[in-house]
Amino acid sequence: MGLAEEYGRERVFNTPLTEQGIVGFGIGMTAQGKTAIAEIQFADYIFPAFDQIVNEAAKYRYRSGGQHKAGGLTIRSPCMGVGHGALYHSQSVEQFFMPAAGLKVVIPRSPIQAKGLLLASIRDPNPVIFLEPKVLYRSSVEHVPVDDYTLPLSSAEVLQPGKDITLLSWGAPLYSCVEAINMLRSPPTGIQEHVPKDARQAQVELIDLRTILPWDRETVAKSVAKTGRCVIVHEAPVTAGAGAEIAAHLQKSCFLNLEAPVARVGGLDTPFPHVHETWYKPGPIQIMDALVRTLTY
């Protein structure tokens, strides 16, 4: 709020509602050495700009032999489910950009993370897609430092150390992961008999990936090599989700350390529903079930 009044309407302005034009305009500005922050109102509508992002912004430096770049471009967009967004206002889109060399994709989990990662994205010499879980706008509360600070991109954060199983996620599902860990320790009445005592005593290592592309392979692989087990959680559908790429890498790098198959918990292979959203998204029950199945494999 107040950006246009503080910095002037030559720097802060609304554009026509055309995603391809918004991103194309941003690429043009950054190609001339400017810094541009383009906002796509919902991540679901980023696809009209997909050509500009993947074929132009991501490849600008490469195809010009380093003479030109679009590295000053940051694209912000709200993503993930919010409880009533249905099929056109609830999607996770990070997996669509996984093969696009030249891009970075970042998803924060909280206000403090959002500020530090956003400032790092704006100052990064590569174009960055910054996806903001919209449900956290009004539900995640922190005292954010007013001073300038950044957080490193492509650096996962271990939120809780553990030795028995690695639980990996990003964005809003991290909060469901915390609930699932607590539920594993003290299962609700009615499902206690389905959770073995050994599983309840397991020490879960929880990791926030933060940057989806390029992701922190070293931190994740080091954790899985230690624990021998891994569950990956994301809101996007399981099929061809970002977790598939992560699981494939872990199968290669941690094969001799794995005690169970890498498990993935995600959305169903359907459009995001108008109703029963809590059944579509990975919730604490589904995540806890994956932890139990992986721990008892």
Rank of each mutant, 00 (worst) to 15 (best):
G8C: 12
R9N: 15
E10Y: 06
T15C: 14
E19L: 06
F25G: 14
G28D: 07
M29Q: 15
T30S: 13
T30M: 05
A31M: 15
K34G: 09
A38I: 00
F42A: 04
Y45R: 10
I46E: 05
F47S: 13
K59W: 03
S64L: 09
Q67I: 11
L73S: 12
I75N: 06
R76I: 07
S77C: 13
M80G: 11
V82D: 03
G85P: 02
G85Q: 11
A86N: 13
L87Y: 12
Q95M: 13
F96E: 00
L103Q: 04
P111I: 08
S121D: 08
F130Q: 03
E132L: 11
P145I: 04
V146E: 15
D147C: 05
D148W: 00
Y149Q: 12
Q160L: 14
P161W: 13
K163W: 03
L168G: 01
W170K: 01
C177L: 08
I181L: 08
N182V: 00
L184E: 03
P187I: 00
P188G: 10
T189Y: 00
T189G: 04
K197C: 06
A202R: 02
L213I: 08
P214G: 01
K222G: 00
V231I: 05
I232V: 12
A240F: 13
E245Y: 06
A247T: 03
H249A: 10
L256V: 03
R264M: 11
G266H: 11
L268N: 00
T270G: 05
H274Q: 11
E277I: 14
P282H: 10
P282G: 10
R293D: 02
Y297G: 07
